[in-house]
Simulated assay, not measured.
Amino acid sequence: MKKNIAILRGGNSSEIAISIKSADLVYKNIDTEFYVPFIVHIEGLDWFVWHNESKIELDKNDFSFQLNNKKIKFEGVFMAIHGTPGEDGILQGYFDLLNIPYNCSGAFESALTFNKAMCNALLKQFNIPSAKAVLLNKNETYDLLKIEKEIGFPCFVKPNRAGSSFGISKVYKNTEFKQALSKAFIHDSQVMVESFVEGTEVSCGIIQKAETLVAFPLTEITTENDFFDYEAKYNGKSDEITPARVSDLDKDLVQTLSKKIYKLLNLKGMVRMDFILENQQAYLIEVNTIPGLSEESIIPQQSKSYGMSLKELFSLTLMNMFKND
């Protein structure tokens, strides 16, 4: 019997447009021989199923809805909400209470990885290098001279708990810092100030396949902009080259570190990890437990390079979900 799958989109962050694109790609490529997909939109308190160009309200008590006078319940959830409440563990906790399996990492692991500063600080204890960073909270005072001495310029100023490069600025001098901080605080009440590491940016996708942890071919990211910002990611201002033009030594280093992080943090589902390569050292940028799945996104490119169709990729993540349940 086919299983009803809720493909979640929306969210309460700036990433909602990317989420809608991701959910659409999943819906188009899910294997309908085994699954009945439904698009479920969650935005604030507005939860509904988008079915035949119309909204059907969801019952939040048991995550069900009525269709043709019949109650429809879901056997599983495919999470495509980037940002809160899909990437930070909130919805995972809700589904844990309802005992509905989902295709991504658990509530605690999602909350941890969504907090870039805390995640990177923890991983440094396990010899996973990342750039020097300080965390600033909204409405608290800060010592710019101390930050300049500790982090230096240029540096990146970015929301601690946000994605898709929203609110990020590359700051070259202290007179630019205040404006960059204000821009980042629009997206989060915590801002990460991170030292600039010059090198090659690469991304590595990870997924479990049977008993093997598979690392996809790396993607090398180049951009005509100053860095890989939102415009570069989604408006054609970058080149994403898969497989990356890096040495076998660097490729093995990034893939090995990515697998190590996946295991250390007890992650599940499709995960993407971003690094900067410099002098045969890989510096972690961030861990993405709900990576983008739009046509422009990196994971679909890597899956294709690996030789796995999108239908196979999504079938694998759903199979893993039910296996782990």
Rank of each mutant, 00 (worst) to 15 (best):
M1G: 15
K2C: 09
K3N: 04
I5S: 02
A6D: 02
I7F: 08
L8M: 08
G10S: 08
G10Y: 10
N12G: 01
S14Y: 13
Y27M: 01
Y27W: 00
K28M: 03
Y35M: 12
Y35L: 07
V40N: 11
V40G: 12
I42K: 11
G44T: 02
L45N: 10
W47C: 12
V49W: 11
W50E: 10
N52A: 03
L58K: 05
D59R: 15
K60M: 15
N61P: 02
S64H: 15
F65H: 09
N68V: 00
I72A: 10
K73W: 02
F74M: 13
F74A: 04
F74R: 13
E75Q: 07
E75P: 03
V77F: 07
F78P: 02
M79W: 09
H82D: 03
G83H: 05
P85A: 06
G86L: 12
G89N: 03
Q92C: 00
P101F: 04
N103L: 08
G106L: 09
F108H: 07
F108S: 07
E109N: 04
S110L: 09
A111Q: 13
F114E: 05
K116P: 12
M118H: 15
L123T: 05
L123V: 06
K124W: 04
P129H: 04
L136G: 00
N137C: 11
D143M: 09
L144K: 11
K146F: 10
E148T: 06
E148G: 14
E148P: 10
I151N: 06
I151F: 13
C155V: 05
F156N: 05
R161P: 10
S165D: 09
I168L: 14
K170D: 14
V171R: 12
V171S: 11
F177N: 09
F177C: 13
K178A: 13
A180L: 09
A180V: 02
L181A: 05
S182N: 10
A184H: 15
M192Q: 11
S195G: 14
V197M: 15
V197R: 14
E198I: 07
G199V: 06
S203E: 10
S203M: 03
K209G: 07
A210T: 04
T219N: 05
D226V: 01
K233M: 06
N235V: 00
N235C: 05
E240M: 12
I241Q: 04
I241V: 05
R245I: 01
S247Q: 04
K251V: 04
K251E: 11
L253Q: 03
L253E: 01
V254K: 08
Q255A: 12
T256Y: 11
K260E: 06
I261D: 03
L265E: 02
L277I: 06
Q280V: 00
A282K: 04
I285K: 08
T289G: 09
P291G: 02
P291I: 00
G292T: 02
L293V: 06
S297E: 00
S297N: 02
S297C: 03
Q301P: 10
Q301T: 00
Y306H: 12
G307Y: 00
M308V: 08
L310G: 00
K311H: 08
E312I: 01
L313F: 09
F314R: 11
T317P: 12
T317S: 10
L318F: 04
M319E: 11
N324G: 00
